[in-house]
Design a protein around this nucleic acid. Structure first.
Lengths: 228, 228
DNA sequence: ACCTGAACACCGTTCAAGT
DNA sequence: ACCTGAACACCGTTCAAGT
């Protein structure tokens, strides 16, 4: 069998007898490799078999460390959620800190292709997910929301920015920076769709920082102005 | 019901008194079958090969009518979007009509398992998608928004309710009405996650009509109160 | 123009057997 | 306890050949 060069950070080559040693597999190493595959080829580039090949083993070996593909998805997400920067309590206005947190959340999900869709697809409940929810809840309560409203709001906020990351993800993998949607909108008949026709440019406006900030404000203003 | 085609045996002259005559393949028929498979088995129950089997043919035959699996997803979505009820113009307040439209949109996406995730995953741009966007744009303009704001708002609204459908979809297929998330939240340590611990009940509250209405109000209030 | 079987290059997961 | 090859039951897509 041909030997692939191991790429995981957690793999230290220890010479043993006459052939290169194979470091033991580990859950963290599997997650590393999975994230690496994701960065290189998106969701389409990630499979258990590819992770196994990358780690120079067979697909069955991974099942010692992860229950199944979905469990790997969970672990990947929790790892990424752990990278989200949570502003220190008491430094600056709660609203700015919450905005910063959600901006970091969105950035992390966009940092590697596939993550956005994972975030929408898999129901995460790892420790880093809880850390995120706890921090957002605290900020909303600090902002004056009552508990029940804050509980619904944290869901709405995480869901919306996950959805944004997922949408950008789909565009990216579908090769759609200026693709089918653009064509469809531009070819639209002014009689049947007068409003779309008049607002084509605005509809196609890229997701820049201004739009992200607007979305943030829409959700926060909405949550602040809407009692249960 | 047992209409498996014996593969390898000649089949054309066999009379089939036990079932209706096989309709010729067509794009619409393929969509019908795909929606049927979706209704029965969710996204996991839908594949081109299963559609082909259901239509009593081989997988290659479908490629005369659809370019690939993603194209089928597009067609499925556009079919479903066509079912969304768009309130008549001028009947009642614009906000009520917009709420009704978005509620219908959400209901249709939840009507069959898999649709919610499809809506988040595939970039739709068919005629029924345009019809939806046009109607929402018109309602937002009627509500007094300027064009650029309405353009961003229609995206945010469709995205958010697609995300809600997708989330419920994931719960359903993951068999998670009261599953891992619940357990994770209930087992949370009061010291590390005081807010989650205090609000466990509120966080787990089902997505009833009250919550849907609240979400609707959050987004509409937010959009109305947030200029670009 | 439409349909087809067969093949290609993949999947996730399980299992019996090894260390 | 960990690892493995092989097998099982699937995928989407392509192709040469049929009608």
């Amino acid at each position: 069998m041909e030997r692939k060069k191991p790429s995981g950070v957690h793999r230290e080559i220890v010479s043993r007898r006459d052939r290169p040693a194979k470091p033991p597999l580990s859950r963290e190493g599997i997650i590393d490799t999975a994230l690496d595959l994701l960065a290189r080829g998106g969701l389409a580039g990630l499979s258990l078999r590819k992770v196994a090949t990358e780690l120079d083993t067979g697909p069955a070996s991974l099942y010692v460390y992860i229950a199944n593909l979905n469990a790997l998805y969970d672990l990947i997400l929790d790892r990424v959620f752990g990278e989200v920067e949570i502003p220190e309590t008491g430094k600056g206005a709660w609203r700015e800190r919450l905005s910063a947190l959600l901006t970091s959340y969105t950035e992390k999900l966009i940092s590697r292709p596939g993550l956005g869709r994972l975030a929408m697809t898999t129901v995460a409940s790892g420790p880093k997910t809880l850390r995120l929810m706890e921090a957002i809840l605290a900020l909303l309560l600090e902002g004056g929301l009552d508990g029940p409203r804050a509980a619904w709001a944290v869901d709405a906020l995480l869901l919306h920015f996950s959805a944004i990351a997922s949408e950008q993800d789909s565009w990216r993998e579908h090769g759609n920076p200026l693709g089918t949607v653009e064509q469809a909108l531009e070819k639209v008949s002014p009689e049947d769709y007068p409003n779309i026709h008049a607002l084509t440019k605005e509809l196609l406006e890229g997701d820049g920082a201004a739009r992200h900030q607007w979305t943030l404000d829409v959700l926060l203003n909405g949550v602040l102005n809407t009692p249960r």
